[in-house]
Amino acid sequence: MIQINDLSKKYKGADDFSVRNLDLTIAEGEIFGLLGPNGAGKTTLISMLSSLLKPTSGSFTIDGLNYKEHKNQLKQLIGIVPQEYALYPSLTAYENLVYFGSMYGLKGQSLKNDINSHLETMGLSKFAHKKIKAFSGGMKRRINLISSILHKPKVLFLDEPTVGVDVQSKNVIMAYLKELNTLGTTIIYTSHHLNEAEQFCTRVGIIDHGTLVGLGKPKELIAQEENAEHLEDVFLAKTGKALRDHA
C-alpha cells in the first residue's frame, strides 16, 4: 500500500536531516505504529506522506500513486488526523463535519447520513449541534477523527490521536480505529503510548534521528531484545535513556 524509497528531509537552516534515507513498505490493512522519541522524525515522515511537506530527496507511492504526479488523487485516498484539533471552534460539530466533508466533494443526504452514523458511533449525537468551543478535549479528538474519515480513506494517518484525552474517550477512539481497520483501512499512527501501540499495532517501526532503528511485529521485537518484556523495553534499548529536549 505504501512504498517509501530512500526518503530524506532536511529543513532549511537545520544542521541535520529529520528523516534520513528511509526505506519502508507498509502493506494494505496494516495498523502500523510509528514510534520514536521527541524530534525523532515521526511527524516529519507523516507530513511528507500526507502532502504537507516536500521531501528533500527520495520518493514514495501510496496505492501505486506517486506523490509528485498524482497529488490530488492521493489527497482523496488518504485521511489525516493531525495532532492539533484542526476544527473551527465557533462552528458546531455538525457544521465542521459538513464543511470538511464538502472539501472531499461529499454532499447531500449521503453526507448527512454518514455524519450522523459516525456521531452515533462516537457517542456524540446529542452534541452534534453544539459549538466545538464548548467540547472537552476527548470530544474534540473524536470530532477530529470523524472529520478525517468521512470520505472513507484507504489510508489513515494519525498523529498522536489519543494525546490529552481521558480513558473513556481513548477506548472509544481505539475501538473505532480497529473497526475501520477491519473494514479495510490501512492505519499509520504515531504515539508515545507504547502500551497502547503494543496492543493496537500489527507492526511497529521505531524511528530515531530520522532512521528506522527497529521494525517488526511488537511481539517479535520484544522477543528479539534481551531482557525485554514490553515494547517500552525495546524502545529504550533502541533509542537510549538520554533526554531528548529540543528548542
Partner: peptide
Amino acid sequence: VRLRTNPV
C-alpha cells in the same frame, strides 16, 4: 493545515 491535506 487540514485544508491543505484536502483536495481543494
